[in-house]
Computed example of a mutant assay.
Amino acid sequence: MSAVDLRRFLACVLIWGTTWLAITFQLGSVAPEASVAWRFGLASLLCAGICRWQGLALRLAPAVHLRLAGFGASMFGLGYLCVYYAEGHVASGLVALGYSALPLTNMLASRIAVGTPLNRRVGIGGLVGLVGVGCVFWPELTRLQPGRDVFLGALLTAGGVIASAVGNVFSTRLATDGLHVWQKMAWGMAYGALCCLIAARLGGQSLGFAASTAYVLSWLYLAVFGSVFAFYFYLELLDSVGGGRAGYVGVMTPVVALVLSGLFEHFRWTPIGLIGLGTAVAGNFFILRRENPIPDGMKDPA
């Protein structure tokens, strides 16, 4: 991985690692459909403004819009709705643990959709990282009691992971259409917001907005940093290194979130948790370390 891609990777991890805490200020008084719609609605407008500033076209062919709709509905719509609702049934640690499977899910989705060769190193590193994050969250998971909430939470988490992987496939396909990342984000987030508005209408949910300081500040942070900046870096990373390596952001993000939980939510580290942290970092280095030089004309499958 190049130095530029490494900076993109670290930016995604650090920003998204803080959004887990910011999302807690969005829950409760406003329906998840509305919160996700307001977040990506604002982010879409900001991305569209950047497109205008950079001279990037916003009028695109109908076939491209179909792929953009699939991209937005899966990555920014269904994926985030699953996250919000999953955290209403189980602890956030279980949701984060589920998303640590994203590198493997991305790799399998790319294999199924476009026949991308499987990468042994990404697979091994992803499994190592998954084991590490599982160790970090093990004390929390052992406190869960089997029941309806656990089943629904696990099902929603799995749905979110799969939706994100599908969105990554659409994103890769859109890159071959020649779309710039800002174009993909402007329209993808707009379609994601529209998906959430439709879901709210069909589910009879109110489209309210909380005027409290905590809600407004978390909304602005999630829209500007958690959506515009982080997704720009992520999609650039996705186009550059492929879904397997880019998806490892989902393994390291929970580690940052746990550090913040220790500072602000009294999360207690255990010996097995510290071992798990080291294991996750080791898996991260295994995936991201630079390989031997590759002859011109050949590309390492991701």
Rank of each mutant, 00 (worst) to 15 (best):
L127V: 10
V128D: 00
G129E: 00
G132S: 03
G134D: 02
C135V: 08
P139M: 12
P139H: 08
E140R: 14
L141R: 02
T142C: 09
T142L: 14
R143T: 13
R143A: 15
L144S: 06
L144Y: 00
P146Y: 02
G147N: 06
G147F: 05
R148M: 05
R148E: 10
R148K: 08
V150H: 02
F151S: 06
L152V: 07
L152Y: 04
T157S: 07
T157Q: 05
A158P: 01
V161Q: 06
V161N: 06
V161L: 09
I162G: 02
A163Y: 04
S164I: 05
S164V: 03
S164P: 00
S164Y: 05
A165V: 02
V166E: 00
V166L: 08
V166S: 03
G167A: 10
G167K: 08
G167Y: 02
G167D: 03
N168W: 01
V169D: 02
F170G: 00
S171E: 04
R173M: 13
L174Q: 04
A175N: 05
A175F: 08
D177Y: 11
D177P: 01
G178F: 11
H180R: 15
V181H: 05
W182E: 09
Q183M: 10
K184I: 10
M185E: 09
M185D: 03
A190D: 09
A190G: 15
Y191I: 13
G192D: 01
A193H: 07
A193W: 06
C195W: 11
I198A: 14
A199Q: 03
R201W: 14
L202C: 13
L202W: 11
G203E: 06
L207T: 03
A210V: 06
A210N: 11
A211T: 14
T213H: 12
Y215Q: 08
V216A: 09
L217N: 12
S218I: 05
S218Q: 08
L220D: 05
F225Q: 03
F225R: 02
G226C: 13
S227N: 06
V228T: 04
F229I: 15
Y232F: 15
Y232A: 12
F233D: 06
F233Y: 11
F233G: 00
L235M: 14
L237A: 13
L238C: 06
V241P: 00
G242V: 12
G242I: 12
G242E: 12
G243P: 13
R245H: 03
A246H: 08
A246T: 13
G247D: 09
Y248G: 03
V249E: 11
V249M: 12
V251P: 03
V251T: 15
V251L: 09
M252V: 14
M252P: 02
M252A: 14
M252N: 10
T253K: 07
T253A: 13
T253D: 02
T253E: 09
V255Y: 10
A257Q: 12
A257E: 09
L258F: 11
V259N: 09
L260Y: 13
L260A: 12
S261D: 15
G262P: 08
G262E: 11
G262I: 14
F264A: 11
